[in-house]
Design a protein around this nucleic acid. Structure first.
Length: 718
DNA sequence: AGGGCGAGCATTTTT
DNA sequence: TGCTCGCCCT
C-alpha cells in the first residue's frame, strides 16, 4: 500500500511520509515538493488505517493552499472533503467557535470583522473616548490591539505605566466591550477566542485532543505565538504534530510571524524527527547556486542547501539601466522577445519589492500593448457595493451589529443624516443598548420618520427571509434595501450592478454543510475575500510583489529594482534581523524561476516625486560573479546605450538616455558618479552645490546619504 | 450629500 | 510623483 503512494518520492520525502506517529519537523526548501509530502503523508496515514478522516487536522495559512491540499488528498483517496478538518487557522477556529459558540461566549450569529471593518470599529471607540487622532492614530491602535491578541493578552493582561499606555489600554478595553456587545469578532479574536475556549473548557479540550491524533501544519515558519500556543493546546499529550516549513522563506515577521517557533517546537515537543528536503525540482543549477549563495550570508538559520539533478542551465542575466524608465523598457522588450520565442506570457513574472514600482512597468507594458495582470488589487468581497450588501445581510442575521448598521443606515440615502446618527449613538449609549434597539424605540424630532422607515426595511427583510434559499435571501435584500435600484440609477453603476448579481451567483454556488446558511455564507465572505482580480486565467504577464510570489513558480522571472534602499528596503536596512529578512525575501524571489532569471536595477529612479540615485543592492554582490552575465557591462554614465542582444534570438536593445541635466562641476563629480570614501565606502553622487570648493551629496551604500565638502572629503572616483 | 481641494504621506499582507 | 483622507463648501 505504502509503496504505491511513495513510489514517486525521493528517499527523504518517503521517509517523511512514513514517519511514525510522533512529532516531526520537515525543513522543506523551495521547490522541494513539500505539498506532495504533506498530502501524501495524509493519504498514507489514512490508507494504512492509522487514522480515520476525523482524526486528522491539517492547517494552512491561505484558503488557496487549503483548497490545494484538499483537492490533492481527494484525488488520491475517495473521501468526503466536508468531513475533513483541513483549513486555515482562522477557518478552523471559526468552525470550532460556531460549534461551541455558547461556551465561547459568542452569539450564534457572530460576525467576523475584516481588517478595514476592525479599523472602523476602533475609530468609533476612539471617538467615544475622545482620544486625539493625532496622538492615537487608529492604525496604531489597531496594531497595538492585534499585537496583544496575537500574544494571547487581553486588555486586562496589558501593562500600562504612563498616561499614553494607559489610554491605549483603555482603548483596548473599550474595544473589547464594544465587540462583545455587538457580537463581532475580528481575525485575531477568532484565534484568541478559540485558544481560550480550549484553555478554559477542559471537556472541550479533551474532546479535540483525543479526536485529533495527527495535526499537520503547513508553512510553519509563518506561525505567530498565538497560533503556536493553539497548536500546542490542541495537540495535548496524544497527538503527533507534523510541521512543514522553511526558515529561509520566513518573510512575514512584520505581521507577527515568529520563526523562533521552529526552534521552540523542537525543544518544547522533544522532536525526534527532523528531515530536510533539499532536492529541488524547480530550478536550474545556476539559479539554485545563486539562491544558496545569497542565503548563506544569513547567520540565523537552521541550515539547508538546495541541489538539483537538472543541469546548470543559463547564466543569470543582469541589466543595469540608467533609469527606472529604461529598466522597464528593457523588461518589456525582453519579455516580448520571450513570448515571440514561444514562452507563454503567464509563465513570465515581473517581481518587485514594493507596489509603487509597478506603475512605470505597467505604463511600459501598456504602451507596448502587452497583456499583463497585476496581483494585489481589490478583491471581490472587498468592493464597496458588496460590503454594503453584506452589511444588510449581517443585519438580517444579527441586528445588534452596529458596524453593519452604521454602514448602511443611510445608504442608499434615506434622509438619516449625521445628526440623526449622532443622536442615535447617544441614545444607545444612555440606554446601554445597540443602535438597532435604540432605533426601534423610535426617535423624536426630525428624522424620526426616516429612522422608522429603516427599521421597517430591516424588519421586512427578516420577515421575508424565512424558509428562503440563500440566493433568494440575497435577492430580497438587494430589492428591499434599494441597493440594486440605487446602482441601476447611477450612470457609472453598471459594473457594481454586475457585481451585485455576481453576489447572487456566489450565494448559489455556496453550498454549506451548515444548517444556518446565512451565517455560514457571511463567514465565508469574511474569511475568503475572493480572487484578487478578474481574468486570473488569461495568458498575461504576471506582475506582483516578491511577497505575493511566494509559493509560485515561473519559467522566466524578472526581479527589478535591485538597489540599496529599495531591496533591501531602507526601512529594513538598519538592523541585522531585518536585513536577514530582506535577504530571505531575495531568496524567495530567486527561487521562483525555473529556467531564466533576470536581475535588473536602475541608476536613477523616481521615488516620492524625487529622482533618487541608487547603488546596486548588496544582494547582487552576494551572488558569485561566475553565475552572472552582465548584459550591459562597461556602460559609461553619460551614454549607456544598448544592451548586448540577450534574448534567445532577438536584439532587444535599450534606448540611449539623455545625459544628466545639471552641468558637470569643475571637480568632475557629476551626479551619478560612483565614488569611494575611506570611511563610508562606496556611494553615488546625488547632488552638488558651490562648484569646486562646494559640497557634494553622496548616497553611500552602507551609510546612507551625506553632504560632504569636496575639498576635505577624500573621495575617489571609481 | 457629495464633490472639490489641499495636506500629508509614501514597504511587504493573509485571515 | 500620485494617492488617500478629511474637511469645507455648495
Amino acid at each position: 500500500m505504502s509503496h504505491a503512494l511513495t513510489a514517486k518520492l525521493n528517499p527523504q520525502q518517503a521517509a517523511a511520509v512514513e514517519l511514525p506517529a510522533e512529532h516531526a519537523l520537515i525543513l522543506a526548501g523551495a521547490g522541494s515538493g513539500k505539498t506532495s509530502v504533506l498530502t501524501t503523508r495524509i493519504a498514507w496515514l489514512l490508507s494504512t488505517g492509522q487514522i480515520s478522516p476525523s482524526g486528522l487536522l491539517a492547517v494552512t495559512f491561505t484558503n488557496k493552499s487549503a483548497k490545494e491540499m484538499l483537492s490533492r488528498i481527494t484525488a488520491m483517496l475517495p473521501l468526503n472533503p466536508r468531513g475533513l478538518w483541513v483549513g486555515t487557522f482562522h477557518g478552523l477556529c471559526n468552525r470550532m467557535l460556531r460549534l461551541h459558540h455558547r461556551d465561547a461566549g459568542l452569539p450564534e450569529a457572530f460576525a467576523i470583522l475584516d481588517q478595514s471593518e476592525q479599523l472602523g470599529a476602533i475609530k468609533r471607540v476612539l471617538k467615544l473616548l475622545t482620544l486625539d487622532d493625532d496622538k492615537y492614530p487608529p492604525r496604531t491602535v489597531q496594531h497595538y490591539i492585534n499585537g496583544h491578541k496575537e500574544n494571547g493578552r487581553r486588555a486586562a493582561d496589558v501593562e500600562a505605566w504612563d498616561d499614553y499606555s494607559r489610554q491605549l489600554k483603555l482603548a483596548y478595553e473599550e474595544y473589547e466591550k464594544q465587540c462583545n456587545r455587538e457580537g463581532v469578532a475580528d481575525f485575531s479574536e477568532l484565534l484568541l477566542r478559540c485558544y481560550e475556549l480550549l484553555s478554559y473548557k477542559p471537556e472541550i479540550r479533551a474532546h479535540y485532543q483525543q479526536r485529533f491524533s495527527h495535526i499537520l501544519v503547513d508553512e510553519f515558519q509563518d506561525t505567530n505565538r498565538l497560533q503556536y500556543a493553539w497548536l500546542k493546546l490542541l495537540a495535548g499529550q496524544n497527538s503527533a504534530i507534523f510541521a512543514v516549513g522553511d526558515d529561509d522563506q520566513s518573510i512575514y515577521a512584520f505581521r507577527g510571524a515568529n520563526v523562533g517557533n521552529m526552534i521552540d517546537f523542537q525543544s518544547d515537543f522533544l522532536v525526534k524527527h527532523v528531515i530536510r528536503l533539499e532536492q529541488n525540482y524547480r530550478s536550474h543549477g545556476n539559479i539554485l547556486d545563486a539562491a544558496n549563495a545569497v542565503i548563506s550570508h544569513n547567520t540565523q538559520r537552521l541550515g539547508k542547501e538546495l541541489w538539483t539533478q537538472a543541469s546548470a542551465g543559463e547564466l543569470i542575466r543582469v541589466f543595469e539601466a540608467s533609469s527606472d524608465f529604461e529598466e522597464s523598457q528593457f523588461i518589456v522588450e525582453e519579455a516580448q522577445a520571450l513570448i515571440r520565442d514561444g514562452m507563454a506570457a503567464s509563465e513570465i513574472a515581473i517581481l518587485y519589492r514594493s507596489n509603487a514600482q509597478s506603475r512605470i512597468i505597467e505604463h511600459a507594458l501598456f504602451s507596448a500593448g502587452v497583456a499583463y495582470r497585476v496581483y494585489g488589487g481589490l478583491r471581490f468581497f472587498e468592493r464597496q457595493e458588496i460590503k454594503h450588501a453584506l452589511a444588510y445581510l449581517r443585519l438580517m442575521a444579527n441586528p445588534s451589529d452596529d458596524n453593519a448598521l452604521l454602514r448602511v443606515i443611510n445608504f442608499p440615502t434615506r434622509g438619516i443624516g449625521a445628526r440623526s446618527v449622532e443622536a442615535l449613538i447617544e441614545k444607545a449609549r444612555l440606554e446601554g443598548c445597540s443602535l438597532w434597539q435604540a432605533a426601534c424605540m423610535g426617535a423624536s424630532g426630525r428624522g424620526a420618520a426616516a429612522l422608522g422607515q429603516f427599521v421597517q426595511i430591516i424588519d421586512g427583510m427578516q420577515n421575508r427571509m424565512a424558509g428562503l434559499a440563500m440566493t433568494d435571501v440575497v435577492r430580497v435584500m438587494l430589492e428591499l434595501s434599494g441597493l440594486l435600484a440605487h446602482y441601476q440609477k447611477d450612470k457609472d453603476g453598471e459594473e457594481r450592478v454586475a457585481n451585485l448579481e455576481e453576489l447572487v451567483n456566489a450565494a448559489a454556488t455556496f453550498i454549506s454543510e451548515d444548517e444556518n446558511n446565512l451565517i455560514a455564507f457571511l463567514s465565508h465572505a469574511s474569511l475568503e475575500a475572493g480572487d484578487h482580480q478578474a481574468g486570473a486565467h488569461e495568458d498575461a504577464l504576471q506582475l506582483m510583489t516578491v511577497h505575493a510570489a511566494k509559493g509560485l513558480e515561473f519559467n522566466a522571472v524578472f526581479l527589478s529594482g535591485l538597489e540599496e534602499g529599495l531591496f533591501p528596503h531602507e526601512n529594513s536596512s538598519k538592523d541585522q534581523a531585518s536585513v536577514e529578512e530582506e535577504r530571505r525575501l531575495m531568496y524567495v524571489a530567486i527561487t521562483r524561476a525555473r529556467q531564466r532569471l533576470y536581475l535588473t536595477l536602475a541608476q536613477s529612479r523616481m521615488l516620492h516625486g524625487q529622482t533618487r540615485y541608487g547603488v546596486a543592492s548588496r544582494f547582487l554582490d552576494e551572488i558569485p560573479q561566475t553565475l552572472l552575465k552582465y548584459l550591459n557591462r562597461g556602460y559609461a554614465p553619460s551614454s549607456y546605450s544598448s544592451a548586448a542582444p540577450s534574448s534567445f534570438n532577438s536584439a532587444a536593445a535599450a534606448k540611449p538616455v539623455a545625459a544628466p541635466k545639471k552641468a558637470t562641476p569643475e571637480h568632475g563629480l557629476a551626479i551619478g558618479c560612483k565614488v569611494e570614501h575611506p570611511k563610508f565606502g562606496l556611494g553615488v553622487v546625488t547632488d552638488h552645490e558651490g562648484g569646486a570648493t562646494g559640497n557634494v551629496q553622496v548616497n553611500f551604500a552602507l551609510h546612507g546619504s551625506k553632504w560632504l565638502a569636496v575639498a576635505y572629503a577624500k573621495l575617489k572616483v571609481v
